[in-house]
């Protein structure tokens, strides 16, 4: 891995180590390496030995903020490493009164964007052995040689479309800021879908959602899906049928998307978690786009003090449905 991220990881370990070992926090949520170099999985560090495993590299994609919901039940004060998206997820939870700000220490990590193993492999065109990074490019080492690609080409899709790489809320910023990304084209695929006729659009979503296993990974990983009881599990009345029928798949995904209207922070974790690659961000972004058009630009999770448009009332709010 890149020299730079090794140094950064060292620095992170040192700073959070002081707080964890000094007793300021009882638990640190971070990442450790998985089976392979391209996997980093959640780390629940309680002591020095755990901290040794702490990693920071181009594969720390998993959003850790959601784990606060469970961990704050056990620990008085929890530290968590937050990238841009994780920080917005934290704000989401804060606005929903799911976490207490004074019981969480946020260590901000400006994020260069995480790399996509699938895309790395495609670029390598053969058995990828390892990568190294320097100055915005990634060198791919395969059995037959080396190849360099621009870092932007091998980012995860959600990272390539990220607007806020820097944490918007933190107690301590551990690395230098990346700066807000300008000119990110997030709504292209939504606009393409808007061009379709209703029938075509229905057919498109019927096809995409037909793959849905209803494993609910999209919900479980989502920072706006923090309801203590989801409508899916409510059994009186029973909103969500158990059958794997197209109607039931629509029911789940549309209710979920609407519940996220004005609340989705656009982190893309749902789409990343989906085992069958349903383009869930297109649903979420359609609603983000509509909210922006109806109520003026609003970025969920950026400012915890700004009220989400659908959770407030103004006499001059547009009434899009009744006006039609």
């Amino acid at each position: 891995m890149a020299e730079k991220s090794l140094k950064e990881a060292e620095k992170i370990r040192e700073i959070v180590g002081q707080d964890l070992l000094g007793g300021r926090i009882g638990l640190l949520l971070g990442w450790e390496k998985g089976h392979y170099w391209w996997q980093s999985r959640p780390l629940f560090a309680k002591n020095e030995a755990d901290l040794e495993k702490l990693t920071w590299d181009s594969f720390c994609v998993i959003n850790l903020s959601r784990y606060l919901l469970e961990e704050l039940k056990e620990h008085g004060k929890v530290g968590v490493l937050v990238k841009g998206c994780d920080a917005r997820a934290f704000n989401r939870l804060l606005q929903d009164n799911m976490v207490a700000r004074d019981r969480v220490v946020l260590y901000g990590l400006p994020c260069p964007g995480m790399l996509d193993y699938g895309r790395l492999n495609e670029e390598a065109g053969g058995a990828l052995i390892s990568i190294s990074e320097s100055n915005g490019s990634v060198t791919l080492k395969t059995g037959t040689g080396e190849k360099s690609v621009e870092r932007d080409q091998v980012l995860m899709k959600k990272c390539a479309e990220c607007v806020y790489p820097d944490p918007v809320v933190y107690d301590q910023l551990l690395l230098s800021p990346q700066g807000k990304k300008e000119g990110v084209e997030r709504f292209k695929s939504v606009e393409d879908l808007e061009e379709l006729t209703p029938d075509e659009r229905f057919a498109y979503w019927e096809g995409e959602l037909s793959r849905c296993l209803r494993c609910y990974a999209c919900r479980q990983v989502c920072p706006f899906c923090s309801c203590r009881e989801c409508f899916v599990e409510q059994d009186n009345p029973r909103w969500q049928g158990r059958a794997y029928q197209p109607g039931e798949n629509f029911m789940f995904h549309l209710v979920r998307a609407y519940h996220g209207t004005g609340r989705c922070i656009d982190c893309g974790e749902c789409e990343r978690a989906c085992p069958v690659d349903i383009p869930l961000q297109e649903l979420n972004r359609k609603l983000i786009k509509d909210i922006n058009q109806l109520y003026g630009d609003y970025e969920a999770g950026v400012d915890a003090e700004a009220d989400p448009p659908l959770l407030t009332y103004r006499p001059d709010d547009p009434a899009a449905f009744s006006e039609k």
């Binding site: 629940f44 959601r66 494993c215 609910y216 919900r219 059958a243």
Partner: peptide
């Protein structure tokens, strides 16, 4: 279990998982 999200991906993609539920419609 700490990192588990409580989703059902592992069971649904597992070729040896075989549990089912019975419901009336």
């Amino acid at each position: 279990y700490k990192s588990c999200l409580s989703c059902g991906v592992c069971t649904y993609v597992c070729p040896t998982c075989y549990c089912f539920d019975v419901e009336d419609f």
